[in-house]
């Protein structure tokens, strides 16, 4: 004699589905898809601080990676194409003209400098000649605020804003 013990008890899946969807949304938001981006291992500098961009300022990020063919320039403006010295200068020049904000030189002599800042994200093992190339392009484009990106160790509070 078989007896079907069906008490009509159903497990409510709604909370689980809610949580799973929340997890998916969380991971979709925080994930950094780096499929077409060059991987850059930044040097460690404990004194590097997080500097919040000032309102109305513009920071251009130049990535220097170790990827790519040997002998090629590996500079990118943002995640754009690889640039040579000339094309980098042209891009920076275009950015300064488009931004069109200028600051007087310290001695007030000569043409003013661009208010644009450049942040160099250079792989720690990339040759420093890329610094030279970027410095050249920045000088020619009248950009003199050039910062170096680095990973910091949590020795102090990295969110202390520089004065």
């Amino acid at each position: 004699m078989s007896k079907n013990l069906d008490f009509g008890v159903e497990q409510d899946m709604t909370p689980m589905i809610d949580i799973v969807f929340l997890l998916i949304i969380f991971f979709m938001v925080v994930t950094e898809l780096t499929m077409n981006q060059a991987e850059i291992v930044l040097p460690v500098a404990p004194r590097a601080k997080v500097v919040e961009p000032q309102p109305g300022s513009r920071v251009l990020i130049i990535n220097v990676s170790l990827d790519g063919k040997t002998g090629e320039d590996r500079m990118q403006l943002g995640n754009g194409e690889f640039l040579t010295e000339k094309t980098l200068f042209a891009a920076l020049k275009g950015e300064t003209l488009a931004f069109d904000k200028w600051e007087p030189k310290p001695n007030n002599v000569g043409e003013p400098d661009s208010a644009i800042e450049v942040l160099i994200r250079c792989d720690r093992n990339a040759p420093a000649e890329y610094f030279h190339k970027i410095f050249f392009a920045c000088q020619k484009a009248k950009i003199y605020k050039v910062n170096l990106a680095a990973q910091y160790e949590r020795l102090g509070n990295p969110y202390d804003v520089e004065e």
Partner: peptide
């Protein structure tokens, strides 16, 4: 990431 400020 942090930033080391410098000038050219």
């Amino acid at each position: 990431e942090g930033t080391l400020r410098s000038w050219l």
